[in-house]
Structures are given as C-alpha cells and as structure tokens.
Design a binder for these strands. Sequence first.
DNA 1: TGAAAACAATACAGATCAGTAGTTGTTGTG
DNA 2: CACAACAACTACTGATCTGTATTGTTTTCA
Lengths: 181, 181
Amino acid sequence: MSAAKRDALLDVAEALFYRDGFHATGVDAIQAASGIAKTTLYHHFKTKDDLILAVLERAAERARRQLDKLADAGRGRGAARLAAIFDDLRNECQAPGFNGCLFNNAAAEFFSRNPAIVALAQRHNAWIAQLFARILTEEGLNGAIAPAVLALYEGIIALGRVQPVEPALGACTAWLNALAG
Amino acid sequence: MSAAKRDALLDVAEALFYRDGFHATGVDAIQAASGIAKTTLYHHFKTKDDLILAVLERAAERARRQLDKLADAGRGRGAARLAAIFDDLRNECQAPGFNGCLFNNAAAEFFSRNPAIVALAQRHNAWIAQLFARILTEEGLNGAIAPAVLALYEGIIALGRVQPVEPALGACTAWLNALAG
DNA sequence: TGAAAACAATACAGATCAGTAGTTGTTGTG
DNA sequence: CACAACAACTACTGATCTGTATTGTTTTCA
C-alpha cells in the first residue's frame, strides 16, 4: 500500500473514530467512507484494534510535531511561551466537530479492554508533561508545576466539548503570566 | 419495580458502563450481571439510551450532593475550601478501576449521536463551575477564575486514568493557596 | 510482455447487538 | 383462596459486528 493511500485510509478512520467513537464506528463504515476494500484493510492491519493503534500513533506524532513547533517559536519569551500553546487551543476547541482529546477518548473506551491503547495515551500525556517541564525550566520558571499545567491543558480540552473555552482560557493565561511576575 | 431494585439495576449498569464504556456494554451483559430480566428492564426503560440517561442522572445527583457536602464543610476557610474539594479527588483517582469522568466519557461516546447525553454532561459541568464561582466569591476571592478551576478539576480527573495524580494535585493546591495570599 | 503482487467486490460465517412475544412463575391484595 | 399485576425465562427477530473466503481485475515491476 502506498504511503498516500495508507494516509488517506487513516485519515478517514481517524475522522470517524473521533466523531462517533471507536466502538460505535464499524469497519464497514470505514470501508464505505474510504473506498478501500475490507480485504485490503485487513491485509494491512491484523485487527480493528491494530488499525486504531495505527490511527492513534500517527495522530500522536502529528500532535507532538505541532506542540514542538509552538514551543520552539516562543523560545525566550518566559511564561508567554507556554501561553502560546494554550492560545493554540482556542482554535482547536472552537473548530466545528471538536470532541475533546482523541487519546483520552480512546483510553476511556479501551480502559478495561486493550492496555496497549491506554499505554499509548499514557505515553502521549507523559510526553506533553515533559515538554511543559522543559519549557518551564528553560524559561527560568518552576518546572515542578508541569503536571498541573498539563491538567489545565487537558481540562480545557475536555471542557471544550460542552462549554465555550474562552473563560477558562482567559483565567488560565492570566495564571501563566502571573508565573512570570 | 421497587426503588431498591431499580437502584441495584442502575448500580450494575453504571459499573459496567464506567468500566467498559457505553457502546461496549451490551444490554445482555447488564441483564446477566444484575439478574433482572431483559423484559423487565425494557419495561422500565424504553431504550438502552434511556437507561444510560437514568444512570447518568442518578450519578450526577450523587456527585452534586457530595460536592455540596465538601463545599459546606469548608465554609469560611478561604482557598482551603476549594483545596478540600481537590483533596477529595486524591481518593477517587487512586481508587481501583478509576476510569476518569463518567459524564465526559459519555459525552465523548455520544457526541454525534445523542444530544441529550451531551447536554446532561454540559449541565453537570456548568453546575460545578457555578459551585466553584460561588465558593470563590463567598470566600472573597476572584470568582472569574472559576472556569479555570473547573478545567484543573476535570484535567486532573482525565489524567488520573493514566498518571499518578499526586504531582498535579500538589502543584494545584499550591496554586489555590497562593490565591488566598 | 509476463509474472506476481496488490487490489476491489461480493458473499459469507459466527457472534453479538437492541429490542420483542409468549409463557410460566411469583407476589401482593381483596 | 382467588384474582391481578408484575417479573423471569426462553426463544426469537432482524440488524450489525469483526473477520474471512472467493473470485476476478488492476497495478507494478522486472
């Protein structure tokens, strides 16, 4: 399978999984939406769970690249470097069809069922926590609060599904700026 | 159906929904685990989604009672009144089988499928935000940060599934205490 | 051009899904 | 005791689930 076709398949699968959930999205729906035959799909992914893992791994890599880019751009700006990452949340949470964090959604659905999926979500969150810690120390701030910053980050994403994010984001960036003062 | 039996049924359904997810939990599994016949179940709940809504509504009432109790107990203690609510999270997140927030999990699974379930999660989060705002103003603090406090609260719950909550909770209560100073 | 792999389409297997019909207890009430 | 209402059980419907077998076509690459 060409890389482009594989990407197209993963695109379709990710969109359906994200919108409708993992258990509620049948392989038939992915087949119908992607045009790729079920036989072919199962030739490249042993099971549906393997496809889900591939979707999640690709999405995690993409998210990490994006976060790295945002973190690099703000280098030397103190707490504003963190605030820039939260600013980016505004766009994502307000995008149509926003349904929270793909990885946390997956972890919730597979909590008692597929440890590999939960572990992937765990690693992804740990990576973000480490990024936050690095940013904080590089900017001369207290790196120990990184876990709390991550909680804020994930909390805003979770709430963004059912609430406007602006109030939380506003108070949050105020906090982050207070860190610098 | 007696109230006790209804409660027992909702207990079983809630436990299965919480552990395995809503779509992954079949009505047959609830029947087998509760001993209540499927006919009876469908006599009292028109559809599976109605059962889910009943489970969520009961759980939301229980959670609100618990939060109200914690909020009342800390009256007059300033930011510590909020910190007490976060302290309670420690126990919940460390309990075996902890799988995040039942309402956010439900909202994620039914986001594109059942607006009533999403709306219930929305109302529950709004209620908590209002509680936090009331506590903050009653304690002479800035009520406008309530949405951010809620984000912290929900973020810790979301992360509690895949991470130890202690670091985030520690930094978080430090923040809350700094609010008082 | 020819061989080999990958592909699509269809049909199917076996299990499970939500939900229902009908019959047999079982229980509470006059 | 007799009656009425509810609950349990079994069995079933039709749909949908993951995953596979089959067959034939297209692509690829030497």
